[in-house]
Nucleic acid binder design. Structure first.
Lengths: 346, 346
DNA sequence: CTGAAAGCGCTTACAG
DNA sequence: CTGAAAGCGCTTACAG
């Protein structure tokens, strides 16, 4: 059976379909339509289970009530929860979400933004990654009523921006290690995490620790945690066949850190006594490692909150200036990080 | 700037817009349009970066090139990877994905299916959960050109169905435990996993193990792994203040299992010597636990493959009968499960 | 071989 | 206060 249309309501009510449309868009009072007429229209609409056709509405130039989410779903930033966090928030407001895996590919991203445009999407959320030259995209983004870019770095763009500052937690971790008297830090990360690596090692150096070229241990491979763990082990084994010259190791995700924990143990090194280990993302399993794995909490829900706020405030008021929100990550101490210093709190 | 339309192409080519539409829908040859005309239309379309408006196309009754994905994104079935697995597969075929969090709520699900209908979605994928009475939905599902239901149980429905058989792995696990000489199994799970609990304990009993009412340990709480871990610990502590009367414990996810591992250790019990532990979902961190955590692999990519196959084959040929695919889970042996028996292979 | 016309369901000036 | 008309971009009989 065909869904009810504005015409079927009009027929039932003995009105023209334009009157029905006006009422259903809450413009009845503004145009001074009799309140009895309005009540009746709404009642019939409800009785007929009327839902307006978003395709037709969009074609007529009005909102399609949709949000486009462009994210590198396999990315190193554990996008997992994000799709849910955002979908839930937007669907609570009556919007529907398009999910795109932009794969950090500029060409794919461009095409998907065009797709969003053609589909009359009200707002887009775009996860930035270094591969995307944003200047080029900001023009495209401005075609939407609202657009939010989520980035790890501090970009300067004429659109609403959320800086998901992962570096913050690494700096806190470096501070902790300095306070705990560690001297020789290393960081184990997949290629392409330059900003974290530099921030961490830079801060370690600043705090008087001994940092060398060797301190940055790179592993290759994409977002697949299984592969990353294998390659982390392989890299460590290959690079440090005899002595492991560091007293602290931080890893850019918890899986890699857990693999490192095993590797160190097999090598006869104690954590945290000989080498402290810190992960990143604060996955639930951290507390169950032996020893419990210190980590860096991303605060993804805060990012989702900020996305929601930025998008819907702008859909409400298109005159707002470009805004910026910062969501810092946070070091979470656990035993694997070594002695806890008194002035630390989480 | 406005995107190119079929009219702008027609103007450029000196044709009527209907001719352009025909060519662009590859009906040129069928209608015997001059090939030179066709070539020219396509060339202009490309030059103008023409992308057809899916809203208009949908309104005119043709495919909108969209797929609706309804899933309980917080659900106990670790939906995380699924959204990506499916999005990637559909977008490779030129389709765009709507993501809905149906929250296992019948009312929400019903509304979202209606939403899909209004949006002219070509196909829907619906994750079944016990709260959804499917008979009621199968009518709604038949309104779509293609619909796939993914369920843990074996449903009988007149639509394409994927049975993601999680029980299979539990049965294999029970077999393993029997072969390893274990006598007193327990299963730790959130409420609502009755089918797994019954299948596991039933099979244990069949294999001669000693199963009592106590063997099923229930914990409350939703899909949040943090809370589940806390509650698992609380429940174990509360229920077994003195002696833990089992020699094997299987858990319905790896996080719970990792918490149990810690609880047992704190209690002075050795894994696997005193109590074997088995998780579920085969998360990457399993290999890094001490001892390495046996688990049950879900084979989510196989589910995604089956979804892709079922949907697109039906969009190609609507005459196909209702089909059924089974994707069984699989027990993955690791040390926490105790002695490995010779005839086992993974 | 090609174009004029109607229609998909909705919105919004505009005319009464 | 309310209706007839045009338009959003596309598709498809139908008439030449």
């Amino acid at each position: 059976m065909k869904p009810a249309s504005i015409r079927s309501i009009a027929r039932e009510a003995g009105l023209s379909h334009s009157t029905v449309s006006l009422v259903l868009n809450n413009r009845g009072d503004e145009l001074g339509l009799r309140s009895e007429t309005q009540r009746q229209v709404r009642e019939i609409a409800k009785r007929l289970n009327y839902v307006r056709n978003p395709l037709a509405r969009g074609l007529a130039g009005k909102s399609t009530m949709t949000i486009g989410l462009l994210w590198d779903l396999a990315g190193p930033h554990l996008s997992e929860g994000m799709a849910r966090n955002i979908t839930l928030r937007t669907q609570n407001r009556g919007y529907t979400t398009y999910l795109f895996d932009c794969m950090s590919d500029p060409e794919v991203t461009r095409r998907q933004l065009m797709e969003c445009r053609m589909r009359g999407v009200d707002a887009v959320v775009l996860r930035h990654s270094p591969a995307l030259v944003m200047d080029e995209f900001s023009r495209q983004l401005k075609e939407f009523k609202a657009a939010v870019v989520v980035s790890a770095e501090s970009l300067s763009l004429p659109v609403d921006l959320i800086q998901h500052d992962m570096v913050a937690g690494y700096v806190q971790a470096a501070d902790h290690l300095a306070n705990a008297g560690r001297k020789r830090p290393a960081i184990l990360s997949p290629h392409g995490n330059i900003s974290k690596v530099e921030a961490f090692l830079g801060h370690c150096r600043q705090r008087g620790m001994s940092v060398s070229d060797q301190s940055a241990i790179n592993i290759s491979g994409g977002g697949d945690p299984w592969k990353l763990m294998d390659q982390a082990i392989a890299m460590l084994t290959n690079q440090f066949p005899d002595k492991f010259p560091f007293d602290s190791l931080i890893c850019t995700n918890d899986e890699i850190a857990s693999a490192a924990l095993v590797w160190l143990r097999d090598k006869g090194l104690l954590t945290p006594e000989n080498v402290t280990v810190i992960g990143c993302n604060d996955a639930p399993f951290c507390v169950a490692m032996s020893p419990p794995l210190a980590s860096i909490e991303r605060h993804d829900e805060k990012v989702a909150d900020a996305i929601e706020e930025l998008i819907f405030s702008r859909l409400d008021d298109s005159g707002l200036p470009a805004r910026r929100r910062i969501v810092p990550s946070q070091f979470i101490w656990r035993e694997s990080a070594g002695r806890r210093c008194d002035h630390q709190e989480n």
